[in-house]
Design a binder for these strands. Structure first.
Lengths: 358, 358
DNA sequence: CCGGTTTGCTAAACCGGTTTTGTAAACCGG
DNA sequence: CCGGTTTACAAAACCGGTTTAGCAAACCGG
């Protein structure tokens, strides 16, 4: 019964069993050339006969690196993973990380506190996504000496970051609707994760909003502030958003949605309201996630290179991690409007739409 | 210029600055009640004036816990994240993990070796997904004393695990097609991550295959082995799979697909081939991911509670992590067929289908 | 065969915390 | 005011590795 709880063997156990010092065991694994070949292999034999594996945490402590990069988000992971956008982004992140031999650690608020979560995160660097650069946590991370790269943040000059041309994309989307004759347009935005920083003008939401407004203004359309509603960035969020718009009595002919996941929800809500898309209602998304071309009808949307965004962020981060002294670099990726079947000419008479819903 | 590389302050620095011992500093953070109140708060003041944060790795080493759980997959993260199924699963995992205050660490083969990846992973437990239980790595993880829960694996009695009724779901899917009059049926399976263990009969793929076969056999249909093709579990994978089937001269009227992501690709391939779904070709998926009801046409599929699967796995894991001495528990979740619009009666004459393609 | 280098290994210090053990001073009942 | 307990903190051991410094034996050219 001495087998009770077979304690994990430590390096000292191996050393004792092999009749050598801890140093020798360490050498056998990390610099075998510093040992006589037969000694090294004997030690290794003993080691794996004992089932020894170096304790990763102890190793991290001495080597001062974790071979892990963190992905930090201000929302709960359970909410961001519900948006396919994040899956695709993670795909890019994972691709670059794996190539360089890094694992991925997702960091989200712990008991409501991002700071607390960061304190427990053992990473060599962090990709911060969707957090405004003046957020206190960001400063804290910098102070802790952890390299970071901002993604989809309000640009801060002295921090490396990756962003896309949100404003240009949004503007193209808005112009597209206007050219089709739409005049009554509603914008569905992404709800801020926390009540604070709600309309951070530098954030993604702010930039897209400016783009939409610019596109509308260019054609002489003035956007009523009440025509901007927000909801969580998910299918469900888009669904309830359009229903809310309708129940408030608004009867737009076109909807600009800041995320494809939400746009898919909008499509569904439209069907539930008895609206045909695009005959009664035109819908434009943002992101161009994989499924957008397969939904019914295929979604007109603003394409952004999601995977490449993730990849770029990681490469940028690792370049900082590996050679600390670098000028902060900003990468900017392009967007472009992709016209599919969810948009069409505005209905002739607004009344038509009303009648449909009766 | 002494500010060059502002070294991260350590506990000894705080102790010195506050004129106390390291012990006192540690107490100030972890058990303030063991210190005079004013001493404790003075130490804390000094600490955060220095910007001190306990080093997470050092803390892990002494406390013997990382507050992190690992999710281990045999495929590269960049490939599994491309399947929305995994996003939803992660959502469930994240939900349960966050509630208990655990972070998430994704582990995938490092330079081709899962073992090497595990060696670098600092986790309190692992959710192993899609790895057969007799895989050598699994034994290695157990040997390392890391608690684990198997998900979607061939059941192994002495390991805790979460699985779904793959066979029943598949059987229902097959019977559904048969009842609709389909006789020429092709099965599109998920490609094994590695060439080894290709048709692991205990794995998900094997179980679903058995279910399909049982469903067909019950109605007197014998499945030709050549009617089973495999491809990667992604939209793209399904797309090429159906094209391959067609180019091999097969003209099924129904397709049973082992994943919704692939099924979406199949829908697209069908459109490219000039086939109407479901008039010319019926398609049944598996998983019931969120978008499946929004694609064109809405996908008939076998529903499985994806999020709940992730949640259950984590809860099971944490119950093991927290009180080691437990009997291995097996959780089994139900599946059910959801009939939407991608399936319909088999076309009357097979020739019709051929003609369409001409 | 002698001084210097190389080989092969070990002892001890270290990474940055936590925890156990120890100790001086304050407190306290009798 | 004296022995015993409590309070408030410090010294040292420890977590499980890596790395530096060091030491004895073997080797080696002259």
């Amino acid at each position: 019964m001495e087998e009770r709880t077979p304690r994990r063997p430590k390096i000292a156990d191996v050393a004792r069993a092999a009749g050598v010092s801890k140093t020798a065991v360490s050498f056998a694994f990390n610099s075998p050339d510093r040992l006589a070949p037969e000694t090294a292999s004997r030690i290794r034999d003993v080691a794996d006969s004992l089932g020894y594996r170096p304790h990763p945490v102890a190793r991290m402590l001495t080597q001062r690196q974790t071979l892990t990069i963190g992905v930090l988000t201000p929302q709960a992971l359970s909410v961001i993973f519900s948006n396919p956008f994040f899956g695709a982004f993670s795909e890019g992140v994972a691709l670059a990380a794996e190539q360089e031999g890094y694992a991925l650690h997702f960091i989200s608020p712990l008991h409501g506190s991002l700071a607390r979560a960061m304190d427990h995160a053992t990473v060599d660097g962090v990709v911060v996504v969707g957090l405004s650069a003046d957020h206190p946590e960001v400063e804290q991370i910098r102070a802790a000496g952890v390299p970071l790269v901002m993604v989809d943040s309000s640009a801060l000059q002295d921090l490396p970051g990756v962003e896309i041309d949100d404003e240009g994309g949004a503007r193209a989307a808005a112009e597209h609707l206007v050219v089709l004759g739409h005049r009554d347009i509603v914008i569905i935005g992404v709800e801020a994760p926390a009540p604070t920083l709600d309309l951070d003008p530098g954030g993604v939401m702010g930039r897209r909003l400016r783009g939409y407004q610019a596109g509308l203004a260019a054609k002489g359309i003035d956007l009523d502030p009440s025509s901007v509603v927000v909801a969580p960035a998910s299918i469900e969020g888009g669904l309830v958003a359009l229903h809310r718009v309708w129940s408030e009595g608004k009867r737009p002919t076109g909807v600009l949605v800041m995320s494809d996941a939400m746009a898919i929800g909008v499509l569904r809500a439209a069907r539930e309201l008895g609206l045909r898309v695009p005959e009664d209602l035109s819908v434009v998304g943002f992101d161009d996630i994989d499924v957008s071309q397969h939904v019914n009808p295929p979604l007109t949307t603003v394409h952004q290179p999601i995977r490449r965004k993730g990849e770029s962020a990681v490469r940028l981060l690792l370049s900082v991690v590996q050679r600390r002294d670098r000028d902060p670099e900003q990468i900017r990726l392009e967007t472009r409007l992709i016209v599919r079947a969810s948009t069409g000419p505005a209905p002739r008479r607004r009344q038509e739409v009303d009648r449909v819903r009766s």
